[in-house]
């Protein structure tokens, strides 16, 4: 195990702990130099050792490479999520593998996906943000539930296809015996309407609906309504888009079409559990805080969405 505590930390609260995992030693040395002044830095080339560290001490942020001989980064993230769910998980990789990125969303619930070579300032800022969230969550006292769970939880489906809607409706009725109600819309304006009126806990959306690109909506949704858990269900697969969905949308699951029943059931199950947790402890939403999109592609559409959001219920 290698760790580095620099000569002097700035006076104040204990520094957060960041664990770096990469099969290239030189990358680790370089990252340590970048973070040693602000954080307690742990590093290892062996993902198995990383898991031991996660068990043994409080790690606030885990930053891992993807392509490693012993274990892939995504596998490490998944195990880390089970072992230490409050540890914020980041993937720092030079290798674009579509399957790995999808897995990092669905199984690793990764917070940010960063490409190598990285920009030092950006990386510092992302790790800093992740650490702050993790520290904030750990100091949470166990909260009292805010209100009872009398209301039926609602799911909003945004998709053009009627067969997708009916398939989902049937599956929800069979799989969850009416615990959740499904609202189905086929356009963006209709979606905004339902958001306002019915206050769903979860949104399941395609990427293009009624001719509109749903990406800006999904990003802004998470920004303004962080308590709503989103699932994207689509046939479209593109690494750039997936990275945006992670970094700026913090989408909970990325699922294929045609719908695979077991995957969707598990996705809704875990998503609703997360929604419930956020409902009881709203601060937990911070764990999935999104990056504000740098520059919207279609100013007109985004402007419309923004104004609709501003007119809606206040985000918590």
């Amino acid at each position: 195990m290698q760790s580095a505590t620099p000569a002097s930390f700035p006076a104040g609260p204990m520094p957060a702990t960041v664990l770096f995992v990469d099969d290239e030693q030189r990358i680790l040395r370089s990252l340590r130099m970048l973070f040693a002044t602000q954080f307690k830095v742990l590093m290892t080339t062996d993902p198995r050792e990383a898991l031991v560290m996660l068990k043994r001490e409080t790690v606030h942020v885990l930053v891992s490479d993807q392509r490693m001989p012993i274990m892939q980064g995504v596998d490490l993230l998944r195990k880390a999520r089970d072992l230490s769910p409050d540890t914020m998980r980041l993937l720092l990789t030079g290798y674009s593998d579509l399957e790995a990125i999808i897995d990092s969303i669905n199984e690793g619930e990764v917070f940010r996906y960063i490409n190598k070579p990285w920009n030092a300032d950006e990386l510092r800022s992302i790790v800093g943000e992740a650490a702050a969230i993790a520290v904030g969550l750990r100091t949470l006292a166990p909260a009292v539930p805010l209100r009872g769970e009398t209301a039926q939880r609602r799911i909003l489906l945004i998709d053009d296809a009627a067969d997708v809607a009916s398939g989902l409706r049937t599956m929800i009725e069979e799989g969850f015996s009416g615990a959740f109600a499904l609202d189905w819309v086929t356009s963006l304006p209709d979606a905004m309407g339902i958001l306002e009126r019915n206050q769903p806990s979860m949104v399941i959306s395609e990427l293009s609906v009624g001719g509109d690109d749903m990406m800006p909506f999904l990003k802004l949704l998470k920004l303004h309504h962080p308590h709503i858990v989103t699932i994207v269900q689509t046939t479209f697969r593109d690494t750039g888009l997936l990275v945006e969905l992670i970094n700026q949308g913090q989408v909970h699951r990325f699922l294929p079409k045609p719908m695979r029943k077991a995957m969707m059931l598990r996705g809704i199950q875990s998503g609703m559990e997360l929604a419930r947790e956020i409902h009881l402890h709203p601060e937990v939403a911070a764990r999935h805080r999104v990056d504000v999109p740098p520059r919207p592609a279609d100013a007109g559409l985004v402007g419309r969405i923004r104004s609709l959001f501003r007119g809606g219920p206040a985000s918590r």
Binding site: E24, R26, L34, G94, K116, W118, A120
Partner: peptide
């Protein structure tokens, strides 16, 4: 190339 480029760039900045 990305891997060495990653630490080279970072080291130069440091």
């Amino acid at each position: 190339i990305n891997t060495p480029l990653g630490y080279v760039r970072n080291n130069v900045e440091l």
